[in-house]
Write a protein that binds this DNA or RNA. Structure first.
Lengths: 239, 239
DNA sequence: CGCACTCTTGATGGTCATCAAGACGGGTGG
DNA sequence: CCACCCGTCTTGATGACCATCAAGAGTGCG
């Protein structure tokens, strides 16, 4: 059930069988949601964290006039709000972008797991630090990249992250966002995302249509994005 | 020496005397730097983390053409790279913006402190999660706020963060950045920052001059910024 | 089959970038 | 002590990128 989560952890870390069992036993409940549900709201007191099993989730914040900014996308295997374990409440909302299956992990079990398995404490701390690294890359994108480079960078990131759990390859991946939701990730309007997608298509770099990203030339796409996967920390971390 | 760090931790958490001693003993060395030194480079293998005692530091990334984006500013009392404890290397550089005094804390001592004092493990995990929360607010700024609102939001954030360690009050704070460095935080050019500062001055909201921010109307500034300090998690977290 | 949402494209405009040049200011040396 | 110099600040002119407004076409779901 949480195999993708273990796969994801094992990209970077060694997880032995005892630890694996502890992780598997930390799940208290599985839930399903339709697309477009805000499943956690900023400011709520939380007693569990949410592990994404299937579908896409995002973290978003908004301004008074309703403008929305997505701060991170979550792919299957990700904890969407592991940070709520230490923060107790979130500064952002969590929204389902597609139909989702999630597992709930109570905070007291996270406490158990991390105190009984100090190595897992480091692994999960790493995991929230990886989220922060992704945030920084988005800061760079939003602050300095052009629209086309920003869009290319997002697709490159997702191609890698989804690839790690078997949901993407060099040719592309399923990606059920609307152009408006893409715009909310990229700090653009949906109209401009539409024109930018058109340019990427005409430049034979990638096509996004019918809930699917088709990558025509990954190397060229990465070049347009100035994509360097270092910020995703794909190397193995010894114990 | 690291009193500001303890002050900062105690805003949110209870730190008892045994823990305080452990923290104080974790420092191995103190260093000084002039302004404009890149003290840590992306990709270096790190064996210690850097605690800022005095001055201002930033984390930045850049693109091929030399465009730079600052992802976070650090004020005295902050760990600039506590996340290197789990990540082992950084995805960004760390630069002194003014003269700085820093304390080095070897990673093996962080390991000691966090295993012998599980409560401090949560406190320091929280601390990196707070950095991520700041990143998210910057994502919102860069993606959705106008130049004037972005600049106001940055000043509001720093007024609070510096205030927590006694380096700012309602009237303002010392802030020795150039307009170009401000632009690198805000995803703008220095020319546009200059014009935006002029507008803030003419609107009687704030003045930034000679290395000092003078706040004329904090409430109005916060309103322009749509500043909500919730993302800084100023509430006390019970043990 | 119809309706609602999403996508697509055109026209226009605003925000911010770029280029350029002069003023200011703080530090240094004669 | 003053002159000089370099970095920073300031302002103007122009233009690019992306937003906004609008309307029609496409698509999928009930």
């Amino acid at each position: 059930m949480i195999d993708r989560h273990l796969t994801r952890l094992r990209i970077r870390h060694d997880i032995d069988e005892v630890e694996e069992r502890a992780i598997r036993e930390s799940v208290s409940e599985v839930r399903e949601y339709l697309a477009g549900q805000t499943i956690i709201r900023a400011g709520e007191t939380l007693r569990y964290s949410t592990l994404l099993l299937d579908g896409l989730l995002c973290r978003y914040k908004d301004l008074r006039d309703g403008q929305r900014q997505i701060a991170e996308l979550h792919v299957p295997g990700d904890f969407a709000d592991l940070h709520s374990y230490t923060l107790k409440q979130l500064d952002h909302n969590i929204l389902t972008l597609t139909r989702c299956r999630v597992a709930l992990v109570p905070h007291d079990r996270i406490k158990q797991v991390t105190t009984q398995h100090p190595h897992l404490a480091d692994v999960y701390w790493f995991s929230t630090n990886l989220d922060a690294a992704i945030h920084r890359e988005w800061v760079l994108s939003l602050g300095r990249r052009s629209a086309i480079s920003r869009l290319a960078a997002l697709v490159c990131e997702l191609q890698v992250r989804l690839g790690l759990v078997g949901l993407a390859d060099d040719k592309g991946f399923a990606f059920g966002l609307t152009q408006n939701e893409l715009a909310e990730c990229l700090g653009l309007t949906s109209v401009h995302v539409n024109r930018t997608l058109k340019q990427l298509r005409e430049d034979r770099l990638m096509t996004f249509r019918h809930g699917r990203v088709v990558i025509h030339d990954l190397a060229a796409l990465r070049d347009v994005a100035e994509f360097d996967p270092a910020y995703l920390y794909l190397d193995r971390h010894p114990r």
